[in-house]
Amino acid sequence: MRAPLWQHTVDRLGDTSTIMLSGELDLSADREVREAIIGELQRPGLTRLLIDMQAVTFIDSTVTATLVYTSNAAHKSDRQFTISPSQRVRRIVELTGLSYLLDPADR
């Protein structure tokens, strides 16, 4: 059996959730990444969602689009949405003009 190329965990503290993603995020991970994020956005009482991508080694355009989609969904429901990127993810975010997704501490 082959080990997954990526993993995620969720840490909840009060009205804040942190989804920690690691590994290679591509088309094969997209559906599960989207479901994990949307699932947390639907958590009652949530006001802030942080996507910790410090351990992400690769991200493709599909998952990048999912981050935009879920960011928009969060803002429509009055929830704060930010990502804390690895250097590779930061480069993609900056090149695509999506720096508004970054955690203010990471800008």
Rank of each mutant, 00 (worst) to 15 (best):
R2K: 05
A3S: 06
P4D: 04
L5H: 00
W6P: 00
W6R: 02
W6E: 00
Q7C: 02
Q7E: 08
Q7N: 09
Q7F: 06
Q7M: 04
V10S: 03
D11G: 01
D11R: 12
L13D: 10
G14P: 02
D15P: 06
S17E: 02
S17V: 03
T18N: 05
T18R: 12
I19K: 01
I19F: 07
M20W: 05
G23T: 04
G23S: 06
G23R: 05
E24V: 07
D26R: 01
D26M: 06
L27I: 13
S28T: 11
A29R: 00
D30I: 02
D30A: 15
D30C: 12
R31Y: 07
R31Q: 11
E32M: 06
E32C: 06
V33A: 03
V33D: 00
R34I: 03
E35M: 08
E35T: 02
E35I: 03
A36S: 09
I38W: 01
G39A: 06
G39L: 07
G39M: 06
E40T: 01
E40C: 09
L41D: 00
Q42T: 05
Q42Y: 07
P44E: 13
P44G: 08
P44C: 13
G45D: 06
G45C: 08
L46D: 01
L46E: 02
T47Y: 10
T47M: 14
T47V: 15
R48I: 07
L49R: 00
L49E: 02
L49M: 08
L50E: 09
L50K: 07
I51F: 05
I51N: 02
Q54V: 12
A55T: 04
F58W: 03
D60Q: 03
S61M: 10
T62H: 04
T62V: 14
V63I: 08
T64Q: 07
T64H: 04
A65I: 02
T66V: 15
V68G: 05
Y69M: 10
Y69K: 07
Y69D: 08
T70H: 02
S71W: 14
A73C: 09
A73G: 00
A74P: 01
A74L: 10
H75V: 12
H75W: 14
H75S: 13
S77A: 15
D78A: 15
Q80S: 14
Q80V: 15
Q80K: 14
F81D: 03
F81C: 08
S84W: 09
P85T: 11
P85F: 13
S86W: 06
R88S: 14
R90C: 11
R91Y: 13
R91H: 14
I92W: 04
V93E: 06
V93N: 05
V93A: 10
L95E: 10
T96G: 04
T96K: 03
G97P: 02
G97C: 12
L98H: 04
S99V: 14
Y100V: 12
L101T: 02
L101K: 05
L101F: 10
L102A: 09
L102M: 14
L102Y: 06
P104C: 12
P104Y: 10
A105G: 01
D106V: 10
R107N: 07
R107P: 00
R107K: 11
